[in-house]
Design a protein around this nucleic acid. Structure first.
Length: 288
DNA sequence: ATAGTCACCTGAGCGC
DNA sequence: TGCGCTCAGGTGACTA
């Protein structure tokens, strides 16, 4: 699935192609995504004025232009790619394939096509203010924003007994940190994923915040991580997989100290760490 | 409020 | 080649 860097990669590709196009219509071949897909009539004729990202949601901003009543009315398509989704901009005549659930037909003889085998993705319409949508309302700060800091995490972690890995994957704590990058960031910060969130020190959280930023920024620069099926809007894979230190490397040597990496499960998710480099001590942050 | 589990769905990979 | 099992990049809803 797409995590934040993959969504950001998709966003960058889409923004250039979608901005200033008009929505001519749409075809919903299978509305049964995570929530039933329903698009309002007022969307027709709207002009796309930008593509933003919030957590792993893509926000396609639309300004009404068709009917007198809708002119100037703003809103957005809020799209999530789930575990297996991808969005492409294609010539309007491109025949749909398996799992092509939704096309948004655009001016310029193009369409925005959503493909999602597992159908864990979603598409919603929300009139302004878009941030008031129930899926976005409770999200924590963006990990690449200045609001996200070691002090913030330390404060939120007070009395929390969950594993720190689950803690940073909680979208209400910080938005958009998924399984790959949580694992990678904890490795870079030298913190054991199973450490209880309340026991990580301020120094540990400062290192963790720096590591999260580093790993996300580097992954975005490389076009994201392709494990099996992620492609950006041009159909290209991401190249961050070569940079993974621990994710998917259970039993293989630690890239730093060669100790075999250990795999466990925390919160139903596969978790891999180096038993030597990632300290089990509460004041984590140490490296070997 | 918090922590843990379940659910949604398809496809790939593995052992037999 | 086929069958059955496990696992997968997410995340809201439930349960204690």
């Amino acid at each position: 699935m797409p995590e934040l860097p993959e969504v950001e990669t998709t966003r960058r590709g889409l923004a250039a192609l979608l901005t200033d196009r008009f929505i001519v219509g749409w075809t919903i071949r299978n509305p049964n995504l995570r929530w039933p897909v329903q698009l309002p009539a007022q969307l027709r004729g709207g002009r796309i004025c930008g593509v933003r990202r919030r957590a792993k949601y893509l926000i396609v901003e639309v300004i009404g232009a068709s009917h007198a009543a809708a002119v100037g009315e703003r809103g957005a398509l809020i799209m999530h790619l789930g575990m297996s989704g991808n969005l492409r901009v294609l010539p309007v005549e491109t025949a749909p394939g398996k799992h092509d659930h939704l096309d948004i037909v655009l001016s310029g003889a193009l369409l925005l096509r959503l493909n999602d085998p597992r159908r864990f993705g979603s598409v919603h319409w929300q009139a302004d203010p878009v941030e008031e949508h129930w899926l976005l309302r409770k999200l924590g700060p963006e990990p690449l924003s200045t609001e996200f800091s070691g002090a913030y995490l330390k404060a939120r972690a007070r009395r929390r007994r969950v594993a720190v890995k689950n803690f940073i994957m909680d979208g209400q704590i910080v938005a958009g940190v998924g399984n790959i990058y949580a694992s990678e960031a904890l490795f870079l910060a030298g913190i054991r994923p199973t450490t209880r969130a309340g026991r990580v020190t301020l120094l540990g959280y400062e290192r963790l915040v720096a590591a999260i930023r580093q790993v996300l920024e580097q992954a975005i620069a490389l076009g994201g991580t392709t494990l099996r099926d992620f492609v950006d809007q041009d159909g290209n894979p991401g190249y961050f997989k070569q940079s993974l230190n621990v994710y998917g490397r259970d039993g293989l040597p630690c890239p730093r100290c060669a100790t075999p990496l250990k795999g466990v499960r925390t919160g139903q998710r596969a978790t891999v760490f180096c038993p030597k480099c990632q300290s089990a001590q509460s004041f984590s942050g140490r490296r070997c």
